[in-house]
Amino acid sequence: MGSKRYQRLRRAMGIVSVLLVAVTVVLGLWVTPPDVVQGQLVRLIYVHPPMAWVAYLAYGVTSLASVLYLWRRTRNLRWDLLAASSAEVGVIFTGLTLITGSIWGRPAWGVWWTWDARLTTTALLFVLYIGYLALRRIPADSHQRAVRSAIAGLIAFIDVPIVHQSVVWWRTLHQGATVLNPSLSPRIHGEMASTLLLGFIAFTFVYVWMLLHRYQIAALEQNVLDAELEKLIQERRNEPGLGSSQIESSGDANNVGQPSKV
């Protein structure tokens, strides 16, 4: 699994990610100045929005990979494994978005949770993709699972704007101002802006590294399953009194384990 070069590349990627995150943390916690309005709290801006961005990026990748699997011309089990890997990483980042948002909300708004449109949408998104991952755990043959989860992943993605719109209306049509005070959003310039940008880059690197790793695990697991299946089939074939022509092994799953160009 994985050529030497690919593994070296991934390791380098991991090291770069750790360094970038470390620099972001140092800049965010100590170097950048506190904000005029938000004070020290503004430091959370270097981690919270990047979490949300990566979550959306991850779900975008999941949907794209789902489409590529559903489209017959590009159908390959790799897309399915990629979609699953990205969704899992996305759920982690969505969870962290919710946690950091909540931690930020407590001192800024005085509450851990508010029924703000963006928060509520994110929470629903979190559950939607947990459902997607749960659906994937249903035992099924790999093609069947791939089709079903690709459809589920796509539906979840299509559902996001509907959910978002409904929640936005819910908060605006029946209630004047939201809790989100516009004056709280700080003006950003200078080193704050560059730190924020660095945060986005750093956590995107982390995402790519995690995705590569998660994908490799998924592919290896698929290989283990295929190998065991193959062995069982061989055992059955060797049993006396059973025509070997009755069982055919599935061939399409065998080429999954190669490193892909993701």
Binding site: A134, L135, I138, R148, I151, D159
Partner: peptide, 25 residues
Amino acid sequence: LASSSKAKQTLLPLLLVPVASPVLL
């Protein structure tokens, strides 16, 4: 989608409720 699962009674609400939440709203 969930029908092939033995756990479909528990899986279906998890899948359906968040998706149908806009309808509820």
